[in-house]
Design a protein around this nucleic acid. Structure first.
Lengths: 104, 104
DNA sequence: TTTAAATATTTAAATTCATCTATACGTTTG
DNA sequence: CAAACGTATAGATGAATTTAAATATTTAAA
């Protein structure tokens, strides 16, 4: 069964990449046409190809870290705050609450 | 220069592996002879070879997530709580505090 | 010192990942 | 309808990672 631990590992792995970390830093609070941070702009900002950024956004999307929507002709991504909070909470449980599991 | 962002990515990457996540779950609060969770015991618990666990512990050590010390003939590892808190704090800054960086 | 036990390191093989180029798909605009 | 723009997908390649096996190193006990 796909443990909850597997999901956490997947999410942390998704965030634990320097390119994806930089992408996350560029993403706005909420879908936002004004600033125009579409996929191509992010690619230009990070000096990587558009398909590469698209690939990384897909990884983040499949990990449930970001959401996206088509607006004003382009595609906009933003951080899913609820998912982010959940990840952080699980990390706190794992790293800060010790549970010395001694079997039987 | 090795950015602080690089370090965070490295740390999250280190934690974002299912085997290392399970290792972390087994580690005690502090170096602890009593429970006897040495490297070989962890290997047995997770059904992996001792060198494999040693390798993963090294990754976690180099990322500054765990500490280790030789005690009572064996080698004991534990989670570095301060480092863990620092990682969580940086994650909160990255994911929950939006900073729409618009250059110029 | 010899023996045994625990951990670290090295080596090698298989897998996985990041990235690019090329291309296809879907919208918007003329 | 056709051209242009933005995004996603596919295929390929080089690099990095995981893992086990073998070996070396360290430590404790006899």
């Amino acid at each position: 069964m796909p443990d909850i631990e597997d999901e956490l590992a997947k999410q942390l792995w998704a965030i634990g990449d320097i390119t994806r970390l930089r992408i996350l830093r560029l993403l706005p609070d909420k879908a936002d046409c004004e600033h125009g941070n579409n996929v191509s702009k992010i690619a230009e900002e990070l000096n990587l190809s558009q398909p590469t950024i698209s690939h990384h956004l897909r990884v983040l999307r499949q990990a449930g870290i970001v959401q996206h929507e088509k607006m004003c002709r382009d595609c906009f991504y933003w951080v899913d705050r609820d998912a982010a909070r959940a990840v952080i909470e699980r990390m706190e449980k794992l790293l800060l609450e010790s549970e010395p599991v001694t079997k039987a």
